[in-house]
Design a protein around this nucleic acid. Sequence first.
DNA 1: ATGAAAGCGCTAACAA
DNA 2: TTGTTAGCGCTTTCAT
Lengths: 354, 354
Amino acid sequence: MGPTADEEGPRDPPVTVKLSDIADEAGVSVMTVSNVMNGKRAKVSPATIERVLAIAARLGYVPNIPARSLAAHRSHIVAALVPVGENNSLLVSPHTVAVVGGMETHLRHRGYHVLLRGIEHDDQVAQTVRGWSLDGVVLVEFPDEQVDRLEVAGVPVVAIDSYAANPRVVGVRSDDHEGGRLAGARLAAAGHRRVLFAGPPYRGMGVVGRRWAGFRAACLEAGLRADDVEAREVLTSFEDGRRLGLRLRRDHPQVTAVFATADHLAVGLMAGIAEAGGSVPGDVSVIGFDGLDLSAYTTPGLTTVAQDMPAKVAEASRIMLEQIEAGRGLDAPAREPVSLGVHLVERGSVGPPR
Amino acid sequence: MGPTADEEGPRDPPVTVKLSDIADEAGVSVMTVSNVMNGKRAKVSPATIERVLAIAARLGYVPNIPARSLAAHRSHIVAALVPVGENNSLLVSPHTVAVVGGMETHLRHRGYHVLLRGIEHDDQVAQTVRGWSLDGVVLVEFPDEQVDRLEVAGVPVVAIDSYAANPRVVGVRSDDHEGGRLAGARLAAAGHRRVLFAGPPYRGMGVVGRRWAGFRAACLEAGLRADDVEAREVLTSFEDGRRLGLRLRRDHPQVTAVFATADHLAVGLMAGIAEAGGSVPGDVSVIGFDGLDLSAYTTPGLTTVAQDMPAKVAEASRIMLEQIEAGRGLDAPAREPVSLGVHLVERGSVGPPR
DNA sequence: ATGAAAGCGCTAACAA
DNA sequence: TTGTTAGCGCTTTCAT
């Protein structure tokens, strides 16, 4: 049941303006006021609406969210769920930040609220949905295997950057295969014949698998030999990129260009290469993925496959709202996943092979 | 009353395990179960506790948060409030991210939840507190003037990076004056006699004012002439830093070192200087503030005054929980603000004057 | 140590 | 168009 937080007293019943106060003043029933406050104005005469609204404003009415949630079995809350790892902390990546912050904005404008919650065990997802009468769930940074394991019913679920097969979940991601292609094509076009793909370990065709597939395909189409398109597993951090950069010459002496699956990684890679006495793009070309601000801050700037984050966030929000307001219950199958376009941002870290 | 989000149907009353189900099974009253579930175990016999807990686990009981909030007038929710600007979006800075993400972790472990909410008007703060029966509020990125304007009563309020005078609010921030001193002393020690402070416009002695005061004091103590410690207003972004870097030579020909109040700004500054043909630290030394990862990614690395973010987050969480569990109502004055230590991280962007 | 009664503020369903 | 009735699932208070 999770940790309990109590042991201290209740709070004094607050002095609060409630529907019945407005109803009394206006000489109407509570239900009429309720209908007005909820925009169900078809059921109320314009005159009454105006009167009720005026009184509500004068009294400073603020709806009681828990009461509304309890009675209606829906909360107007969408939870942003993020798996917590070892360190137990969340909101690590700039990408996640953009998603959560952006969705809050979209949802707020439509009268919804965002609960931010770290998930320690799979069960907590369903528990959170039930316990809060959630209207929807956004899964951020969940690995596909975990998304597939989840059993959530009755609420729309949108998973960011997921290719999971779970039919109850709508994946919203960038076109990772195309992104890989762009990177591969760019490097091949620059003349590189020995290239390296650097990304985290993966199973199946998720985000990373697709980037690799697209990258490889584009390279082969451009005439590179299969053996000359290598892949190297590294974690997605500046530090891991730096380490790879330091030993790149030794471990991959023939390679003249690297595609890193994240800007952080790519920037670390550039730093490591520089530290080892190499130059970018003189000795090695580097291309990243994401299009974070970060990629403009380095010297040289990082050429990268940029995701359209605002579009991704907008799309995720749109789908979420659409499904909520369509009252997607236990029944209807989730809609089709969405892949958003990517494009190459040229900044200077790609040049001809040495 | 804000936008309304309805017009579509209610949801089916979910099949839910409730306290009364457990009570029936266990042959005890609902209250006993409630007491067990809330850890008020002093009031229940060990045997009963065990039995109830077993049944609850078997049935898969999940507490209904809205019901509990409604009845108890407290929600176990702490809202992280962030003012929204023109773009209406939030969670922009890495700093905010660290705060919100970190607090979620701390609070979750104590049984609390985090509601993330953008604030458009001052009123929304008090409304959110009432409407949700919030247990606490964290203000992030609120300017001091706004914090002082807020009228929140009955719940603990912690404001990050605030020096506001509002007695109901506990400020948690780094020791900005000391941070300014560290920067000034470092530049002076390197031999610089003409230095520039670059930061956003400010009124009164907030974060920026204190950094400036500390910087100036340290410079003067080190023997610089008052006229040679200039201040320049720029917004806190990479782009604004870059622009300043581009025109630095023209606008401030005598200046040999710059203290920028944020790493983003400083990194942009370095980029601008490089773009204009200058070198860091050869022509101009640069020192930043924050200690973001970012500062390690540049070439040269950015010397910066680092904040202890984990400590800041831990402290803010600690104070929040302490005040909640002390039942800080309308009465008690808020406790003393907290300033956390800072330290200099040397990376290479500071050298002797040209 | 345990229970009974009452109600938190709101909405669904039905009636008028 | 408006009102009435009956809860939602839980906690409080007061009794036993």
